[in-house]
C-alpha cells in the first residue's frame, strides 16, 4: 500500500494522462517481477526469509489465529476466505453508495467537471488506488497462507490481466456481476487447465471478445438483463 501511495502520488499529482495510468501500473508490476526474479542469492532476504529469485519464497508459514492454523489442508481458511469476500463485498457496496462513491462516479463520467465542483480529483484517485492495493495485499496474504509459497509470476503479465478480464466480462457497473464472473472464470480456467493450461486462456480470451462485441456493459450483466426480461414476459 505504501508503494501504491508513492507511485499513485507521482502518477496522479503529476497529472499523467488517463490512458497512460494503467500502462504505467503494468510496467511497475513487470519491473517488480523482473526485480524479484533475480533475487536468487543469499544476499536477498528480509530478516531470515529468502526472496528466492524465480522459484519464489517457499515454506512460508500459514497464518495462525488464536491457535488455529489457516492453511490449505483444513477448513478454517476456507471460512476465513468466504468471510473476507463477503465483508469486502459489503464494504465496497457501502463505499459505492456513499457520497464518496457518487463523487467517484462523477469523476469517471467527467473528471474536469468534477474538479470544477471543488473536488480534488487527484486525491480521490489516489485514495481509490491505495484501497485497491490494500485489497490486493489482503488477497496476497490469504493466497500465501493457503499455498505456503509465492513466486514472482504472481505479479506477471497474466496475473495483471486476469482482474481486468474479470471486470470486463462481469460488467464494470455491477459489483455482484464481477464477483460472479471471477468465480466462474477461475473455475472455468481450473477445469480447462486439466486438459491444457494455455487452452484455458484461449477460451477466456474468446469470452472477452464476445463480451466486447455483443455486451460491452459486461457478459454477466447482459445475461442478467436477458434473464430479467424473460422472467417478466413469463409472468405476463
Amino acid at each position: 500500500m505504501l508503494v501504491a501511495l508513492a507511485f499513485g502520488y507521482f502518477v496522479f499529482y503529476g497529472r499523467v494522462s488517463d490512458w497512460i495510468v494503467p500502462i504505467l501500473t503494468l510496467v511497475l508490476a513487470l519491473v517488480l517481477e523482473t526485480f524479484f526474479a533475480q533475487t536468487a542469492g543469499y544476499q536477498w532476504r528480509i530478516g531470515r526469509a529468502l526472496l528466492g529469485g524465480y522459484n519464489g519464497m517457499t515454506n512460508i508459514p500459514s497464518l495462525n489465529v488464536a491457535g488455529i492454523e489457516l492453511n490449505g489442508f483444513t477448513f478454517p481458511l476456507y471460512f476465513v476466505v468466504i468471510a473476507a469476500v463477503v465483508i469486502t463485498f459489503l464494504a465496497m457496496r457501502r463505499l459505492v453508495n456513499s457520497h464518496f462513491g457518487h463523487v467517484l462516479v462523477a469523476i469517471r463520467e467527467d473528471p474536469e467537471r468534477t474538479e470544477l465542483l471543488g473536488y480534488d480529483v487527484r486525491l480521490y484517485r489516489l485514495i481509490v488506488f491505495v484501497i485497491a492495493a490494500g485489497l490486493a495485499a489482503l488477497s496476497g496474504v490469504l493466497y500465501v497462507s493457503w499455498g505456503n509459497y509465492i513466486t514472482p509470476s504472481a505479479m506477471g503479465l497474466l496475473a495483471e490481466t486476469m482482474p481486468v478480464l474479470w471486470v470486463a466480462i462481469g460488467g464494470r457497473g455491477s459489483l455482484a456481476a464481477v464477483v460472479l464472473s471471477t468465480f466462474l472464470l477461475e473455475a472455468l480456467k481450473d477445469w480447462l487447465a486439466v486438459y491444457s493450461g494455455e487452452f484455458a486462456l484461449v477460451v477466456v480470451g474468446f469470452l472477452l471478445l464476445l463480451g466486447m462485441m455483443f455486451a460491452p456493459q459486461g457478459l454477466v450483466v447482459a445475461i442478467a438483463q436477458l434473464g430479467r426480461r424473460a422472467l417478466k414476459r413469463w409472468q405476463e
Partner: peptide, 22 residues
C-alpha cells in the same frame, strides 16, 4: 482549479457538462 472553486469562483461550460447518467 478545485481550490479556486472552494474560494468562491465557479464556471458553467459552453456545452452542458452534467452527469447525464445520474
Amino acid at each position: 482549479p478545485y481550490k479556486r472553486v472552494r474560494l468562491g469562483l465557479s464556471m458553467k461550460y459552453q456545452t452542458t457538462r452534467i452527469f447525464a447518467h445520474l
